[in-house]
Design a protein around this nucleic acid. Structure first.
Length: 611
RNA sequence: GGGGCUGUAGCUCAGCCGGAUAGAGCGACGGUUUCCUAAACCGUAGGUCGUGGGUUCGAGUCCCGCCAGCCCCGCCA
């Protein structure tokens, strides 16, 4: 419906221009051309669109807003292109102009989508031609020698979904896993392992990952207390970063082991990622500092080299620094992040040539990224048309409203959390099968439980506005009613049921064999029209997610679509309908299923035929 | 001390560029099944949008103050 919206926008602007030429000219001269304030109708009874642009004109024109609206409507009515799209506009309330599309236009839009694998969502690749600049989505980013936990869940799921939406829109997307595989933490770990488990540094898988995690914790504790250990650790970092073969080998083994473990999770969640860890940027760190120095941004303070931020003051009103080289000469995470920005926007042989870079990390890093982004901007590393965006998200909390922990008080491992979701989904399914006296084989039960369990975890996370903290609850996410994955999956299953019971969904608008052109779609019931209007919103929703990077907007849409469909399903017969209505209703079912499958697919959620 | 985010129904949350009577789901209460999976549908009750100002034709939405919660703040990431 975006194309219709654009057409109406143009017609409204032209109508306002004709109705109030002087005001329009003045407005243009003032740099603020008249705006019809066209938007989707806020309520179904207002039609499809509303234009509120008459109201703000009342004061400057010295006329009542309804009179202004009337003048605009008169001009609109004189436009044949408008008359073809819309019924006669209604003026309502203080001066809103309500627009309702002609039924045959709506039916034609549905018809067009039935034959379109993209369901009416345009691709930037078609429009812009080749040579599109890549979009980078930086997400997940676990740390080597640590297990993935719930904290990584949000980044992984949100990042994956955003990448899928951008890919669907036709952007070349680089999904980058900026794993923590460098820096002080490795010095600590290697130093500690040399003393307690030297075999881990020379032999693959000599200790298992759980032990490695424990060793890491011990190393961290020693680092915080023991000065001699700190010194040795720092020396170890220097050895690693300068390429000492023994250190490199140990590092490689540890990374490989962790990587295999991460990959199991990614495979389970069907997430594709290219690993490009912090270590990748090691060769560029000195160049970053040199660049900053050359731009005159660098200041040495307390022995550390830093850039002082503009507009951000810390204690005692002093500007806040971003430290890029520590007093011992080492680099830190800010240096690495700066090197990454420079590389990602850099042109192709020595960079990615990206024009949009998106970081999906927790909101706690907002200050850090704001600082790093400012430095990058001042250093001139971001092209004029480049977009650099931090996509923050809130904490995962338990049902007590505190940070999610196990009963024993430990961090919840992602693996365990996914297991539990699948187990609970299976228990629910078994209970339902027993109640309904259905029998299904083990493969079916496993497949449904796995799909529903993982879908529930993903959807619960994605359906919430990411900026707020998110209260994790198995009971709520697996609930069979409400804004949950099972509710949406069930809508798809219902349509699949219609297909199984004899509804030929693939026949397009027509069921008549041999008849070349499809029979025209005819809709009579309000539930049909409600479904038609809902289906046509898809392209606008996708455009919004692409721009705002809020997957919950897509979730809300899919939930509302499912609700409208369930109402239709409940109140309007499909298979038992008279022939002319039957084929049109089957077409609606098919488009609904396709829309739900596509939308859920963009959330990383596969659908089911039966459940 | 400085900065960021959040505050909407009993609970969990939506609310798009400021727009008409603030919306869902859960929970509560009451209905619907000869019919495509009732994992559904229909209805009722439930609100000082933290609070006080301001901007304007119009504010949950924008601006300022205050209160509460969470998070961050020089050489960890």
């Amino acid at each position: 419906m975006l194309t219709v919206l654009h057409a109406l926008q143009g017609q409204l602007c032209a109508a306002m221009e004709r109705a109030f030429p002087e005001a329009a000219q003045q407005a243009r001269a003032g740099g603020r051309p008249l705006d019809p304030q066209l938007a989707p109708a806020s309520k179904p009874e207002f039609g499809d669109f509303q234009a509120n642009g008459a109201l703000p004109l009342a004061k400057p024109l010295g006329q009542p807003p309804r009179a202004i609206a009337t003048a605009i409507v008169e001009q609109l009515a004189a436009d044949p292109a408008f008359a073809e799209l819309c019924e006669a506009p209604q003026i309502a309330g203080p001066g809103f102009i309500n627009l309702t599309l002609r039924p045959e236009r709506l039916a034609a839009e549905v018809q067009a989508r039935l034959g379109d694998p993209r369901l009416g969502v345009p691709s930037v690749a078609e429009a812009g031609g080749g040579g599109l600049a890549p979009v980078i989505v930086d997400f997940s980013s676990p740390n080597i020698a640590k297990e993935m936990h719930v904290g990584h869940l949000r980044s992984t799921i949100i990042g994956d979904s955003l990448a899928r939406v951008l890919e669907f829109r036709g952007h070349p997307v680089l999904r980058l896993n900026h794993v923590g595989d460098w820096g002080t933490q490795f010095g600590m770990l290697i130093t500690h392992l040399k003393q307690v488990a030297p075999e881990a540094l020379t032999t693959a898988d000599a200790v298992d990952l759980g032990d490695l995690v424990a060793f890491y914790r011990q190393a961290k504790a020693r680092f915080d207390e023991d000065e001699a250990f700190q010194t040795t650790s720092r020396e170890e970092v220097v050895k690693l970063q300068s390429g000492d073969p023994i250190s490199r080998k140990a590092w490689q083994l540890l990374c490989d082991q962790s990587r295999r473990e991460f990959q199991k999770i990614y495979d389970r969640l069907d997430i594709r990622l290219s690993e490009r860890g912090e270590s990748f940027y090691n060769p560029y760190l000195e160049g970053v500092v040199a660049d900053l120095d050359a731009s005159g941004l660098l200041v040495t303070d307390d022995g550390a080299r830093c850039v002082f931020l503009e507009g951000v003051s810390g204690k005692d009103g002093k500007p806040l620094p971003v430290i890029v080289q520590k007093s011992d000469g080492g680099f830190n995470y800010a240096t690495t992040d700066l090197a990454a920005i420079r590389y990602r926007f850099g042109s192709v042989p020595d960079g990615d040539g990206a024009r949009r870079v998106i970081y999906v990390t927790d909101a706690g890093q907002a200050n850090h990224f704001a600082g790093v982004f400012q430095v990058a901007r001042r250093a001139g590393w971001i092209p004029a048309d480049g977009r650099l965006e931090h996509v923050p998200f809130g904490l995962v909390q338990g049902e007590d409203g505190k940070k999610l922990k196990t009963r024993a008080g430990d961090t919840v491992r992602l693996r365990d959390l996914l297991d539990e979701a699948v187990e609970r989904a299976e228990a629910d399914l078994q209970r339902r099968l027993a109640e309904e006296e259905r029998t299904e084989d083990q493969a079916f039960i496993q497949h449904v439980a796995t799909t529903v369990g993982l879908a529930a975890v993903k959807y619960a996370d994605l359906s919430q506005n990411r900026i707020t903290n998110y209260q994790f609850s198995f009971d709520r996410m697996l609930a069979l009613q409400g804004n949950t994955a099972p509710y949406l999956l069930y809508a798809v299953v219902r349509i699949a049921g219609i297909a199984r019971k004899g509804g030929n969904l693939e026949a397009g608008g027509s069921e008549e064999a041999g008849s070349g052109a499809p029979a025209p779609l005819t809709f009579t019931e309000p539930q049909e029209w409600a479904l038609v209007r809902e289906l046509l919103k898809l392209d606008g929703v996708i455009a919004e997610v692409e721009e705002e990077l809020l997957p919950n907007r897509l979730c809300t849409y899919l939930f509302e679509l499912s609700q409208v469909f369930n109402r239709f399903y409940d109140q309007v017969p499909v298979l038992k309908a008279e022939e002319s209505a039957r084929s049109s209703r089957l077409a609606l079912c098919r488009l609904t299923a396709d829309t739900l499958r596509l939308g859920l697919g963009l959330l990383g959620i596969p659908t089911l035929e039966r459940m």
